[in-house]
Nucleic acid binder design. Structure first.
Lengths: 397, 397
DNA sequence: AGTATTAACTCAATTTATTTGAATTATCAA
DNA sequence: TTGATAATTCAAATAAATTGAGTTAATACT
């Protein structure tokens, strides 16, 4: 049978209830703190309905009550807010060299994080490591295991889907016929979502970064290559086959640098950690992690500076492209690139003055550095789980 | 108060009903013809609910009954399909030189179309012309005025929003402080939606073109400049400020052709009618419409061929870009560019082999020419109205 | 040919969740 | 002190979906 996209599913009283519950939670998240009547106005539900949902949420321990606050005449409204510790989520990033883990609460606070080096990246070993980290990080965070809603696991694709950006480079070996979702579900005993780094980064910013109250923004993610994650009107763009955002292989200069993909002029060959490492290697400099890179930068290494200066124009070009194509509220830069380097790159960028993004009524910066730093992917994994709580949608498919 | 995006609005029984009605209509549209039980399965509603909705729709005249068709055991299902003439929509394109109008039925059939030259493009005169065309085109289509659900009007922006692509070039004069929505509502006496050409084209393909059963596709629209319209998972991308898809000012070559916008290397200066006209003018050839252009092409004009050959590489570059960023099922090319030219351009494009779009399980062409031809914008306007009938969404805002 | 099986559809009763309207409470303003 | 205003709650009403039993008309099997 023809597949019908998820939104085209009927509704009923139960689904309506779930939807409304999430609407209420979402209102509380964006308003921070609010009374029943206020939520009713924002959600266009009746006061009574909101009242019912609030008391339900309260009895389930989701809320904090902040007493009555009077604003003018009338009975002062009882203020509610989300109890950050009501639920938590586990986020993990699986790399070929290490596993990162983080526990995040509803407010997006990181309660604990951890890193374990990986020597043997075969599925069973990774699963075992992941399982161990779950326990250790739960201990560190001092939360009951029962508060974990689920785990968002970030790992190099392709998994099931066909990807390209990391093709051959960072894919884990021995994972060909492995279903990571099933593997980690078993290892962790909680609901698991598998996602790739760029999309995780998008959610990281939404739950605790620059995008808490943004609905349309883009994230340029420095991984091995470079990816683009887009939130458009509260929906993440995934593309028909789940491969949207392959920024690294966008050609920015016909006949430019040859790329491993067979084309030439791909962005990835100008702006990415991969291109940076290549440039440094040509000058006999070898760095293995972000700290060394940052040290090089602090030392004013001329080769690094050289790369930065050559990278800024292509980066500005694609930022302009993203602005023109997606018209986001902001573009966020982040991922596996040390903050000072990102800041420098951002400072060097001349944003197109004639762009549609160059408007006087703008309330958000055109370009900013992401807030979550080096833990972006792991935090993003957790953020995916947290975010699901707040996204109302009829039809859970 | 903080604005909450439209999806974050509560639901109730009534809104649920509306949603389910649209789900049923949408099922009928994609399945073409179906029985109650079949729709129930597709929509995950109970048979009874679907049955109720179907009988309601039927008594309101929305359906055609095609008798029972037996497929294996059991009571053969009564087949229903949407009665194409149950409702119609008016589509109009306002240009500085002419107004186009079309009447389209639910199935996307064009029942009538018309063109009126415009000599005086001041708002009142255009409104008068539009009103007149409504009557004439209704007569031509032989439909009752009451079947018109509304009008989708396509005109050069910016209207309220801040746009760029046509800045200065095709904007209508004397329309500065005019609210076209209000103006045309009064002139036509039916609900009016104002939209720009690119987004209209997206809907045109969805209602009657290549995208009837696509959920994710992109439309590269040749207007004065060049625009990109994207349907992502059934949602049109508009951007935070309504300016998404400014393909014309995407820089495809740093330091390339200077553009009126102040940048250089904008796509518009390589591939667009504007650039084509400029190229021909340099060779003392002046064309005023598509027919003349087509004649030139048929005659094998060397200057035109020259332009085509220079345009195909930049076009291929942005097609690759769109594939990488949006991962659509198909990319559709259309708008104010004669079909033979589009076909030639498409034939000249070498699609990137390493692209994420280059997959073996693909069921749809990577690139096709749009079906609606020169009337795209007007048909698209009507399609917007038609499409609203089929898009289920809780919360009419 | 006859019977069992299957599937679509209908009717009536039930269930879920929202809305409505009246009553209550607490604050501000005059 | 009194009246206006707004938040909240209670009880009753309402809307619409689901459930389960029953009907109908096909195909499959014996």
């Amino acid at each position: 049978m023809k597949s019908i996209s998820p939104i085209h599913v009927g509704s009923n009283a139960e689904r309506t209830k779930l939807h409304n519950r999430q609407v209420v939670l979402q209102c509380l998240r964006t308003l921070q703190t609010a009374g029943r009547a206020q939520i009713a106005r924002a959600s266009k539900l009746s006061t009574q309905t909101v009242s019912n949902i609030i008391s339900e949420l309260q009895s389930e321990g989701w809320l904090l009550e902040a007493g009555r606050v009077s604003k003018g005449r009338g009975l002062p409204a009882i203020q509610y807010s989300i109890r950050p510790t009501a639920a938590t989520a586990l986020g993990m990033e699986i790399r070929s060299d290490a596993v990162f883990a983080a526990v995040v609460d509803l407010a997006g606070n990181t309660l604990a994080s951890d890193r374990t080096p990986v020597t043997d990246s075969r599925p069973e070993r990774v699963a075992a490591a992941v399982s161990k980290m779950k326990s250790s990080v739960i201990d560190k965070a001092k939360i009951p295991a029962s508060s974990l809603l689920g785990a968002g696991i970030v790992m190099p694709g392709p998994f099931g889907r066909v990807g390209l950006s990391d093709a051959g480079q960072s894919t884990l070996v021995g994972w060909h016929d492995v279903d990571p979702q099933a593997l980690f579900s078993r290892a962790l005993n909680i609901p698991v979502v598998i996602e790739h780094d760029t999309i995780a980064a998008v959610f990281a910013e939404r739950v605790s970064g620059h995008a808490i109250d943004l609905d349309s923004y883009a994230f340029i993610y420095f991984g091995t290559g470079i990816g683009l994650g887009v939130m458009a009107n509260g929906q993440v763009l995934r593309g028909a086959f789940g491969n949207a955002g392959e920024l690294g292989h966008v050609v920015i200069e016909r006949g430019g640098n040859p790329c491993a993909c067979g084309n030439s002029g791909c962005l990835e060959t100008y702006v990415s950690r991969f291109s940076l490492h290549k440039h440094l290697a040509k000058n006999n400099i070898y760095v293995s992690d972000g700290n060394e890179l940052e040290a090089l930068y602090d030392a004013g290494n001329p080769h690094l500076n050289d790369w930065l200066d050559h990278a800024s124009a292509p980066l500005a070009q694609v930022i302009g492209m993203v602005e023109n194509l997606f018209d986001p509220q902001s573009i966020i830069l982040g991922g596996a690139m040390p903050a000072p380097l990102l800041d420098y790159l951002i400072s060097q960028i001349t944003l197109a003055p004639g762009s549609i993004a160059d408007r006087s009524d703008r309330l958000t910066p055109r370009v900013v550095r992401g807030k979550s730093g080096r833990m972006t992917a792991a935090l993003g994994g957790a953020a995916i789980i947290i975010n699901e709580l707040f996204v109302p949608r009829i039809a859970a498919a």
